[in-house]
Deep mutational scan, measured.
Amino acid sequence: DEEIEKWIETLLKRNISLRVNGKDLEIGSEEFKEWVEKFIKEV
């Protein structure tokens, strides 16, 4: 979905790490990609 890709790009540009389930996810890491894929499937 384009919306999500733009959102991810924005996050990448800002180099933010997300806190997911109490863990810091490094943007661009494998864990982050897995989380994004799960997130996309749920939406």
Rank of each mutant, 00 (worst) to 15 (best):
42 E>Y: 15
8 I>R: 03
18 L>I: 10
32 F>Y: 05
40 I>W: 12
10 T>I: 14
40 I>A: 04
31 E>M: 12
37 E>Q: 14
30 E>T: 10
15 N>I: 15
31 E>T: 04
33 K>P: 01
3 E>I: 11
23 K>W: 09
24 D>I: 14
37 E>N: 13
41 K>V: 04
43 V>C: 15
29 S>V: 06
14 R>Y: 13
22 G>K: 03
35 W>D: 00
37 E>G: 12
15 N>D: 03
10 T>G: 05
28 G>H: 03
11 L>K: 01
34 E>V: 13
34 E>N: 12
24 D>F: 12
21 N>V: 04
8 I>S: 01
39 F>C: 10
30 E>V: 10
14 R>M: 13
35 W>G: 00
5 E>R: 14
24 D>A: 09
23 K>I: 11
33 K>S: 06
35 W>S: 00
31 E>K: 12
7 W>T: 01
29 S>I: 07
21 N>K: 08
20 V>W: 07
3 E>C: 15
3 E>M: 10
24 D>T: 11
38 K>Y: 11
30 E>A: 13
2 E>L: 12
40 I>T: 03
14 R>T: 08
29 S>N: 03
6 K>F: 09
22 G>T: 02
15 N>F: 15
20 V>N: 02
12 L>W: 04
22 G>H: 02
23 K>E: 04
34 E>S: 13
42 E>V: 10
6 K>V: 04
4 I>N: 02
10 T>V: 07
20 V>S: 04
43 V>W: 15
43 V>Q: 08
34 E>C: 14
38 K>R: 12
3 E>A: 12
39 F>V: 05
3 E>W: 15
1 D>Y: 13
12 L>G: 01
14 R>G: 13
29 S>E: 02
33 K>V: 06
43 V>L: 14
17 S>C: 15
2 E>R: 13
31 E>D: 06
31 E>G: 07
25 L>H: 04
22 G>Y: 07
31 E>Q: 09
42 E>N: 11
13 K>N: 09
19 R>D: 01
22 G>I: 07
28 G>T: 07
34 E>Q: 13
22 G>D: 04
26 E>M: 10
21 N>H: 04
35 W>T: 01
14 R>K: 07
43 V>F: 15
33 K>A: 07
41 K>G: 02
29 S>T: 08
42 E>D: 07
32 F>P: 00
10 T>W: 15
24 D>L: 14
27 I>E: 02
31 E>S: 06
28 G>S: 04
13 K>W: 11
29 S>D: 03
13 K>L: 13
15 N>S: 12
15 N>A: 15
